[in-house]
Simulated assay, not measured.
Amino acid sequence: MPGQNWAEGYHFTLSKQDNTVLLTVFSLEQEGYFTRTLFNATTKQLISGIHKVPKGGGLFKEDSGISWNVLKMKDTFYKNFFSDSYSTDNLIYATTPKGLIATKNNGNTWENILVSQSYILDIHTNKQKISINAEEGLYISLNKGVTWNKLNTPSKVSLANLDIDGNVYICSNDKILKESNKLWIDMKVPLSSGIIGFKLYNKTLIAYSSDSIQMLNMKTSKWEEIGKFNAIDNIFIT
């Protein structure tokens, strides 16, 4: 939810993990740089924080508030993404004007993963699988970027994501579609107004418009509305 009054410019999310209530704060610090800070909402203890600054394209990452590591960038970059298994593989991806690069050592060395002159809109990882939604199309790798395939999509893709099993979902022409054997299956989202976005969490597909959020239980194939809201712009799941 967006902050107001003294907290204008801040966004807060509450979540629960292992019976601990977590507060995530997205904000701009005094010099206007993006920060994301995670607290224990009960004890107010700082758990972690990320601070993005333009110096050398670097991203400073804080672990439990004890130490900071600088991410060394060799090139101009647009966005950074952490692997879904970062705790074990230490993989960090960065999109650049030349495509996608990756590092396992905080930027001391970088490897080209995908060469593309097309602007990369988003990237998602699931174990060995990577999906890249670029302006020129949707790319999938089954081996962490060693080889790539371009998926044929029914129309231009605005959003793409991978579920827990590695299945590909896209948002296109106000529909959410799931890829299955080179076919696209309409998930038939019961939203009365246009789809703004969607999230995938465990066995649940969450779709939202500007005034409603719907959840699909993939085990039962049933949709459930979880609430009516005003002026939804984005939702966060942590």
Rank of each mutant, 00 (worst) to 15 (best):
K203L: 10
T76E: 11
A160C: 08
K129W: 04
K16A: 06
I196K: 14
V21Q: 10
A41P: 03
S67D: 12
L121Q: 13
G3Y: 05
G57I: 06
K129P: 02
I235F: 06
I237S: 02
L142E: 15
L121V: 11
I206W: 04
K44T: 14
G99K: 02
L142S: 14
D163L: 03
S67T: 14
T153M: 01
K144N: 11
K188A: 13
T88L: 10
S209W: 05
N217L: 05
T238N: 15
G107P: 03
S212P: 01
L59G: 01
R36D: 03
S155V: 09
S180V: 13
T238M: 12
I140T: 04
N152C: 04
I170R: 00
N202Q: 15
Y78M: 04
K98T: 15
A207K: 03
N108R: 13
I123R: 00
G137V: 08
A102E: 06
P2Y: 13
L91N: 07
D233W: 12
S180G: 03
G145V: 05
L162N: 05
S212V: 06
S193I: 12
I176V: 15
I130Q: 02
S48P: 00
Y86F: 15
G65T: 07
A134Y: 03
V21C: 03
L177N: 05
A94M: 09
S67W: 12
T109C: 04
D89M: 05
